[in-house]
Amino acid sequence: MSGATTPRRPRLLPHQRARLLPTVVLLIGAFYALVPVAWIVVAATKSNAELFSTFTFRPGSGLFDNLGDLFAYGDGQFVRWAANSLLYAGLGALLCTVISTMAGYAFAKYEFPGRTGLFYAVLAGVLLPGMTLAIPQYLIMTKTDLVGSYWSVLLPGLISPFGIYLARVYADASVPDSTIESARLDGASEYRVLTSIGLPMMFPGMVTIFMLQFVGSWNNFLLPFIMLSDEDRYPINLGLYTLLAKGSGEPALYGIAIVGTAVSVVPLICLLLFLQRFWRLDMISGGLKG
């Protein structure tokens, strides 16, 4: 293990000796993760002709043209897609977090008939692939005339069995029963107990649920692909896919799709970097610490 170190330095402490190899492995991992991101940024600077004719990592001359084309495409459709994604992922994840937190808190902090059975139903929902539900959900939406509307993508995203499961784990772990009891003895209503004790204590958990759900919706491709037909209602990834699909008949769109990808990835990366300090991902593995 320490064979890779230099022999010139005598008497290294054990933790110093192992330094090089782990660092190198980590940096290889970081490089692996960053190469495609670097590619998309470089590719965004290329004109269509350069895209197919110059070496992949050589920056091109078309960045501003591409950006101009992107924002001009379909009368600013890209901005609309971004706004839609924000609506589906942002508003959807926010509501989903509230709903999941309420349900998880109820499962964790109350005894009521049917609690175990309902919770097992939710657990089964965790194991059911969301994608296999997309087609049945589509069928229900056609029956209720919601297909093609904003609701058809937003509503299915509000229920997350995994979110409920996580909320229960967080409530179990971070809201002590004794605190709740003393608040009740002081005469606080159930509503006040939840809002002034439960929610603040669960906040880091809620951020985690929000983040997971946000990324899940942001990435969700099949559901909007099935539900929507009006391009003005597309989320950003579906819009980019459409550009690419059209790109094979109309390759000028490749450049737009690629610069659009670069533009859409950057804010999400910033959001993740900002929110990661609030994460409680350790809780995902359940009762580990309970």
Partner: peptide, 22 residues
């Protein structure tokens, strides 16, 4: 006017939308 994607996608969506009545 709406552009619902290329030929195959439009056909797919047309079937879908037709069944949904829209």
């Amino acid at each position: 006017h709406t552009d619902a994607g290329g030929g195959t996608d439009t056909a797919t969506k047309l079937l879908t939308a037709s069944r949904a009545g829209n």
